[in-house]
């Protein structure tokens, strides 16, 4: 189908985008368009105006150190998937980016858009929460930092205020990360996915842990009990099984065409165990 009529505005800079977006609830930002355009075509989203932030300068660029990965909001998911630097210092993000939809989507979809859309089936929200990253948001009242735990409110809703725009992601790096996702077919949405980011000491002790999920009723919920099970241990098989079970038990799941709650819970457990094993192996490797 074709979208209903809407106004289109090309933002020239961040301030222009912010003032355009601040004009009302029915103004929506578009960057890569990989989520918004299908919603427009299906007439699910009916904005009065679409503000194109895709050419705003200053929102691109990947900056990687051992400590952190910084991404401009307009960095494409394909760029994340292809970055050797990210793969070395933050493999969770590489793995999460590589399983987003198909190459066509990854070539256009942006990391900022993937987060701001707050789709519980998206992958980067879980990666952000697991790695305890934060985003910079610029709005009418200036720039503020939003921690991952404070960004996602409910499906398709973030804590961004009207007029606020994600401009940058700052994500702590760790070699001990992994992302496991079950898709029914390569181009399909995921059924469920598990993001894991650990900080492993020289002695193999897990100093901190981040575990988050995609495909649940909430957007990127943190598996607190799974994290607590891991921290302070050396990540043995029993610990992995326990943490995976905790993640599965605590997941808020809904039955749909992708599977029953029982099925999804089992898959969360299986994927969590696989992601943890890989993350721990990487940390000790």
């Amino acid at each position: 189908m074709r979208p209903p009529d809407f106004e289109y505005e090309l933002a020239e800079d961040v301030q222009g985008a912010v003032s355009a977006l601040a004009q009302g609830e029915s103004v929506m930002a578009i960057a890569g368009g990989q989520s918004l355009i299908p919603l427009l075509r299906l007439r699910i989203a009916r904005p009065s105006r679409v503000v194109d932030i895709g050419r705003v300068p200053g929102l691109t660029g990947i900056s990687v150190s051992d400590e952190s990965t910084e991404l401009g909001a307009l960095v494409t998911t394909a760029d994340v998937a292809a970055s050797d630097d990210i793969s070395r210092s933050n493999p969770l993000w590489t793995e999460a980016a590589r399983v987003i939809a198909d190459p066509l989507v990854r070539n256009l979809g942006t990391v900022g858009g993937n987060l701001a859309h707050a789709d519980p089936l998206n992958d980067l929200p879980a990666a952000l929460v697991a790695s305890r990253g934060e985003v910079l948001a610029e709005g009418p009242n200036g720039v503020r930092t939003i921690a991952s735990d404070d960004l996602f409110v409910s499906p398709f809703t973030t804590s961004l205020e009207p007029g606020e725009l994600i401009t940058r992601l700052i994500v702590p790096g760790s070699p001990s990360g992994a992302y496991e996702k079950l898709k029914r077919a390569a181009a399909d949405y995921g059924v469920v996915a598990v993001a894991v980011q650990l900080d492993i000491g020289d002695g193999g002790d897990i100093r901190s842990a981040g575990v988050s999920l995609s495909g649940t009723s909430a957007v990127a919920p943190r598996s607190n009990r799974a994290e607590q099970t891991l921290v302070g241990t050396n990540g043995g098989d029993d610990v992995i099984e326990g943490a995976a079970l905790a993640a599965a038990e605590d997941a808020d799941l809904a039955a749909d065409e992708r599977g029953s709650i029982r099925y999804k819970r089992a898959v969360v457990g299986a994927l969590a165990a696989r992601a943890l094993r890989r993350a721990i192996a990487r940390g000790n490797g």
Binding site: L182, R184, V191, R258, G259, S260, Y263, A266, V267
Partner: peptide, 8 residues
């Protein structure tokens, strides 16, 4: 035989 069907 989608994954969920087979798993069940």
């Amino acid at each position: 035989l989608r994954p969920n069907v087979l798993w069940e």
